[in-house]
Design a protein around this nucleic acid. Sequence first.
DNA 1: AAACATTTGTGCGTATGTATC
DNA 2: TGATACATACGCACAAATGTT
Lengths: 252, 252
Amino acid sequence: MLPSDDAPVTAPSDVERGSGVALWRQIVERIEADIHEGHLAPGTRLPTEMELAERFGVNRHTLRRALATLNEQGLIEATPGRGTFVKEPPIRYPISSRTRFSEIVSGEGRAPSGRLIGSRVEPASAEIATALRLPPGSDVLRIDMLREADGVPITAGSHWYEAERCRDLDLLVAATGSVTRALETLGLGDYRRLETRITARLADEEDRRLLSLPAGRTVMVVEAINGDPQRRPIQFSRARFAADRVQLVVKN
Amino acid sequence: MLPSDDAPVTAPSDVERGSGVALWRQIVERIEADIHEGHLAPGTRLPTEMELAERFGVNRHTLRRALATLNEQGLIEATPGRGTFVKEPPIRYPISSRTRFSEIVSGEGRAPSGRLIGSRVEPASAEIATALRLPPGSDVLRIDMLREADGVPITAGSHWYEAERCRDLDLLVAATGSVTRALETLGLGDYRRLETRITARLADEEDRRLLSLPAGRTVMVVEAINGDPQRRPIQFSRARFAADRVQLVVKN
DNA sequence: AAACATTTGTGCGTATGTATC
DNA sequence: TGATACATACGCACAAATGTT
């Protein structure tokens, strides 16, 4: 069975044996390059493992080792019975003084949506009190949300507000599905991002459930402080982003 | 054997049974709070699992479930035979127009060091050519480095420079262990960060080897473009940060 | 070097509550 | 109302890593 003409690039057999670099690693680098150069567009289906193995002149096990690495890197995704596909590139998510989920997602040509998961008033922990510059233990309103682009979950997280200043904000969020619009209604539409802190970790059960992630994926944990035009903190948030669906971008 | 007086907080048995919230989850929240409030300082050793289980009045398995969650969250770390410890907080790593590894690490009161892993001249991939605004395939100098704070690996990555403009930069980096100082010698000390892109993924074998990470940890993949004062790109870099040792911070 | 205690890591079996069909 | 599946919780035993004597 000869390779068809419309097959993706991943050029035929140019791996060097005994070059000191493992065959599977050479294959990783070739396919990686093909994806980065744009020869393999997002959504493209790769040839079957058997076919690829033949082209590179290696055993299917060797090829699978390469595909496993590319999968770990988040570049491809394999489904039994369907094939292996080049993944869609992540949403570019700019972090700036004016960071708004819905605007960013719209700007990427995708449809944003938000869903209220829950809300309650609770005493502020030391961390949240510091961020919001409130006395520790003050009442804060906590709002848990899930946010999606084209129905795909992007981020899930909690937002904390000074309870007194933001009465009924949770109802407004539930009604509009948007924090921005809810804050506008309260006359706080002009908020701006003051600080953003970013770490990452393995997605736990809850992350996976909320964000519909398979096991072994990672989330970026993004803490943010938003304030009013006078830079007084209004909101502290801690959200988990599906790491392989988002790329955070900082411009200076 | 009674608990000693100097034992950490994690108050004795105040978990509610049949409250609708699983016991292990209540324990997570208590210890989490103790860490965040500062009652459990970084580096503190927690009581043994047996002891904690007794204090909370639960089975050791139940307690272990709570510890596993805290471990996933990166708050604690356990070693067989030694015990369970509250982790040191991550280095705060500000991303700004003037982002310098050594300055940041020094500013955190830690000793920065850098080690050259390798370097070579290679043709620019499409991505790198775009970032550096060079014709695709131009010669670029690639420098691979590992950077540490107090001897602990923080980040490993590649830096690409226009080959012509940065001749012998690799030798300077090898000599000084610092990209900043090497660039200064070439009269390019005044570079500034133009753009930063951040994603995250599970650490692969190479990441784990370079960064001395145990299996299952995550890395943040940070791509950066640095330019001269006229905002002409000088350097493109792609580095992997040990996610549980660093918190990237963006101020607006 | 060898024996030992301490502590976390892992496995098995069992019982109970809770949500779902 | 069952029937079923799943998460929670407990008890006991042993393996593996570490530090000390």
